[in-house]
Design a protein around this nucleic acid. Sequence first.
DNA 1: CTAGTTGCAAAGAGTTTGCATGGCG
DNA 2: CGCCATGCAAACTCTTTGCAACTAG
Lengths: 153, 153
Amino acid sequence: MVKYRTKQRRILLSYLSSHPDQALTARQIAEELAGEGISLSAVYRNLAEMEAAEEIKRLSQCGVREALYQYIATPDCRGSLHLSCKKCGKTLHMDPGEAVEILRRVAQTDQFSIDVGETVLYGICGSCKGLRQRRPAAASFQPVGPEDRKGKK
Amino acid sequence: MVKYRTKQRRILLSYLSSHPDQALTARQIAEELAGEGISLSAVYRNLAEMEAAEEIKRLSQCGVREALYQYIATPDCRGSLHLSCKKCGKTLHMDPGEAVEILRRVAQTDQFSIDVGETVLYGICGSCKGLRQRRPAAASFQPVGPEDRKGKK
DNA sequence: CTAGTTGCAAAGAGTTTGCATGGCG
DNA sequence: CGCCATGCAAACTCTTTGCAACTAG
């Protein structure tokens, strides 16, 4: 459990809370905050604490090996299903009414209780779709760095 | 690309296709088929081929580090959203009509195109729910072994 | 001053890959 | 018989952990 309010904790929380809709890897966060003075292990450790405290959500995308972390201690996360855009990496919150309706319908039709906290719907968001399938829109923050993926031989 | 029809390929495909609703780790598969004569690396390599050929889906659950693989080359996988039970590890296919309806609604209300192939809804299935939250129902095939999760010092 | 935290480096866990051998066609 | 695929072990990547130094309260 958290006892002290360290500099690193403050830096990390500040950074995450100012990027509430971005799904980021621990590495990305650490690099981004490298100048501020926080190590990768501190990032991991604090991320774990924050996850336990439900301030952030840890999600894993299909072909991505690294875990993605995202700030969720915002009001619009309440009972809302998350929509993660595979192009821009941003996470949107499904319309609350819509989410409730879906949960209800699935529970009824398929006899299945969706765990809202663990479920993320992947796809393409409106903005990215509007920009055509091929332009990643000035890739402001791609969750992965697929430039040279594993250097295949 | 696949060129030869090897013994291992046959064993693996046979096993997976006979467990179409189970999300399994590479390790589980390899152990299960150890007696048949197929190594872990062959499992991984063939799994990769099959994933590329869209015969199986590779999914990653939240707190689980290992990737889960599942056979999807069955008719009822067509356009259907997958519901993965966190208790028994089984995957159900959402009612087709229901799935289409949800995709349509989300596209309309949230301007978001869900990628059916990459999205999995996690939760508790009807059977497991009926058995009360605490009895894992004779855990026929738990994808993880959460017994002692990381042993926190 | 005391105990929680940090940073570093080493350990782990899961997955991928190089290379020589073996098997499909 | 040639080339693809397998096995094994080493290499890799991401994440966790041990330990001494540091610092918040």
